[in-house]
């Protein structure tokens, strides 16, 4: 059995707590996480996969396997890539309902707003919204 959304979030909170208040090491860590995202296919780097509302470019695609939603994403900035890698770690490979019900408390707990500033926080909210929209679409299809 995979870890639950809650367990993964708590794991992330633990990791970030080790970094403490040092903003620089936190940012380096986020960028490092972004570097570990799987390669994003060049053919998917197209306008319709861009998430609206992000200041930097973020591409997001999904596929469904065994009733689970899998996300793949990329960004032109390393910090944003790191942020979306956290969301993918929490939400990818879940059932649509789990994604829709997810309360993503880890974002506040790790002090993301202070780290990335208000403009990127809006971008992060746009990413979450888009991921939930995909989940809703799959759920509707599964229930059809």
């Amino acid at each position: 059995m995979n870890s639950s959304i809650k367990e993964i979030q708590d794991e992330i909170i633990d990791e970030f707590s080790i970094l403490g208040d040092d903003k620089e090491s936190t940012i380096f860590y986020i960028m490092e996480l972004g570097g570990k995202l799987p390669e994003f296919p060049e053919k998917d780097r197209v306008e319709e996969n861009i998430i609206k509302g992000c200041q930097s470019k973020v591409w997001l695609t999904t596929k469904e396997e065994n009733d689970q939603v899998h996300f793949l994403a990329d960004s032109n900035t390393d910090i944003t890539k790191g942020l979306i890698s956290l969301l993918i770690r929490v939400l990818s490979g879940r059932k649509p309902k789990e994604i829709l019900d997810a309360d993503l408390y880890f974002i506040d707990k790790i002090g993301m707003g202070n780290i990335i500033g208000s403009q990127r926080s809006n971008g992060l909210a746009a990413m979450i919204k888009q991921m939930k929209l995909y989940a809703l679409a799959y759920q509707t299809k599964q229930n059809a």
Binding site: K23, E24, T26, I27, M31, T77, D78, I79, T80
Partner: peptide, 14 residues
């Protein structure tokens, strides 16, 4: 190799 936003955020951290 770096996006200006990332450079700006890291400078701000300093």
């Amino acid at each position: 190799g770096m996006h200006p936003f990332d450079v700006g955020v890291m400078l701000d951290a300093n």
